[in-house]
Every structure is written in structure tokens, then in C-alpha cells.
């Protein structure tokens, strides 16, 4: 069997000290295969954001290991971690996190500039990716001049331009209208299918989740269930997710 892209084992995260502690993640273990499109769902406070932060190296785990191929990123020091992020990870956030002082084009090529690519190469890559996301017409505009959907596509381009092994998306459609959201999700799905980009997405929206191939449900810091899309159509998978959530809210008051 081929090696998994990400192997998470016995991962724990505890906040606070002494008696006033809170265990956000409790001994979580799972793997993500190359080319997977994994969704993480769960009620507020279930630990999904913490899980994403820890996987994305934004936060450090209290215990456990995270292996990405052969590297244990849970044990890495500051500087190698920066290099690792640059080479392997991409990020999309709910609130875009674009830099106001840079144009769309400059925002997108920022990761390449940080990696000190040649100008020629940067131009080429920017051209390619912006055409894929159809924002090549607004390349010289500033973030405040474009719509939310365009901003999120810009952020996606920035996340993908360095060809990361793993793309993290934290509620990427949270601030978008349904048309822009569908558009973004379809593009992510295409990238996943054609380019085999591995994507990890945290969301509470069943519609967004229905684009994934596999969904992990998180509850009280533990994995409670896992479902696969397999050969279902997106609509059927969506129904499937809704049923799962309905079942959970039967035993819980806290729905999505």
C-alpha cells in the first residue's frame, strides 16, 4: 500500500493550566491519503478549528504526532517549520486574509516571491492559475475594489500557486453568497479530481461538505463518525450528510 500523505496519531490538545484545563482534542488518530478531499464537521466547540490549526502548524499539539509523509511536523522547530509551510501547505480562510496594500496579482504571487522564484516563472504561474479561477481580468485591482467571491478566488489562487501538497480551507464559503460559494467549491472539486490536490476543509455547512469525498465528524474533541461519498452523486451525499446531522441533533441540542 502506498504511504498516506498525513498520519495523525494520538493527537491531544489541552488548553489552560492546573485545575482549569480544557481538552479540545482527545487522542485523535486518522490518516489522509494522497489526493483526498476531506471535510471536517462538528458542532461549535467540538474542536474542529483546533484540529485544523494544529494540522496546519498554526498551533502546537500537547501530545501526539502528525506525520506528513516522513516528517513529524509536531516536533519541528520554528525555522524549518516556516520552510516546510512554504513548500507544502496552502491556506484559505473565511475572511480571505488578503493584504490591502497589494494588488490581486501581487497577493497571489506573494508565496512565490517569498520562495524567491524567478520573475519569469512567477508571471507564468500567475497567468495559469488566474485563468483557471477566471480572475485574470481583475489582476491589477486592489482587494477593496473587488467582490467577496473574487476575493476568495484570489485567496485560493494564492494558496494553490506554490503547488502545495495539502490545502487547508477553514470555512472558505462562510462569507460568500450561494452562487459564489458553489462556484468556489466546484473549482476546488475540479482541482482535486484533475490535479489530485489534497484538500482538508473545515465547515459546518452540509452543502459545502457534500463536495468532499470523505467527511470526519468531530464531537467533544473526539472522532465520532466517518462517512465516504464513494459513488454517490453530490445530491445523494448531501442528503446523506443531512441525515447524519439530524441523527446527531436527536441526541444533542447543539445542532450545526
Amino acid at each position: 500500500m502506498m504511504q498516506s500523505l498525513v498520519t495523525v496519531s494520538q493527537l491531544s490538545k489541552t488548553y489552560g493550566k492546573g485545575t482549569n484545563t480544557f481538552r479540545a482534542l482527545k487522542d485523535i488518530s486518522f490518516t489522509i491519503e494522497h489526493g483526498g478531499f476531506v471535510g471536517i464537521m462538528g458542532p461549535s466547540g467540538s474542536g474542529k478549528s483546533t484540529l485544523l490549526n494544529v494540522l496546519a502548524t498554526i498551533d502546537t499539539p500537547t501530545a501526539g504526532d502528525i506525520h506528513m509523509e516522513d516528517t513529524n511536523i509536531a516536533a519541528m522547530k520554528d525555522q524549518p517549520l516556516a520552510d516546510f509551510r512554504r513548500k507544502n501547505l496552502g491556506f484559505i480562510f473565511q475572511d480571505y486574509n488578503l493584504l490591502d496594500s497589494l494588488t490581486v496579482k501581487e497577493n497571489i504571487l506573494l508565496p512565490l516571491a517569498i520562495a524567491r522564484n524567478s520573475v519569469h516563472q512567477m508571471k507564468k504561474k500567475v497567468q495559469e492559475i488566474t485563468e483557471t479561477f477566471e480572475i485574470h481580468t481583475i489582476m491589477d485591482k486592489y482587494p477593496y475594489e473587488i467582490s467577496g467571491g473574487q476575493k476568495q478566488r484570489t485567496a485560493a489562487c494564492r494558496a494553490l500557486i506554490s503547488d502545495p501538497k495539502l490545502l487547508f480551507a477553514d470555512e472558505p464559503t462562510g462569507a460568500l453568497d450561494s452562487k459564489s460559494a458553489t462556484d468556489l467549491l466546484e473549482r476546488m472539486q475540479t482541482l482535486n479530481q484533475t490535479n489530485e490536490n489534497t484538500i482538508l476543509m473545515v465547515t459546518h455547512d452540509p452543502f459545502a461538505a457534500s463536495f468532499c469525498r470523505r467527511i470526519l465528524f468531530l464531537e467533544d474533541g473526539q472522532l465520532s463518525k466517518e462517512i465516504y461519498r464513494s459513488n454517490q452523486s453530490r445530491r445523494d451525499f448531501y442528503q446523506n450528510i443531512l441525515n447524519e446531522l439530524a441523527e446527531k441533533s436527536g441526541s444533542h441540542h447543539d445542532t450545526i
Binding site: A56, Q79, A82, D83, F84, R85, L99, R158
Partner: peptide
């Protein structure tokens, strides 16, 4: 703060 965090997330070293 946020801007600095973003640079860091995109893989810039702290020294840079």
C-alpha cells in the same frame, strides 16, 4: 499582527 502572521503562514522565516 495579522499581516505578520500571514507572512509566517506563507512560509516566510521570522528573520525575513
Amino acid at each position: 499582527k495579522k499581516e505578520v502572521g500571514l507572512y509566517s503562514l506563507l512560509g516566510s522565516r521570522k528573520r525575513s
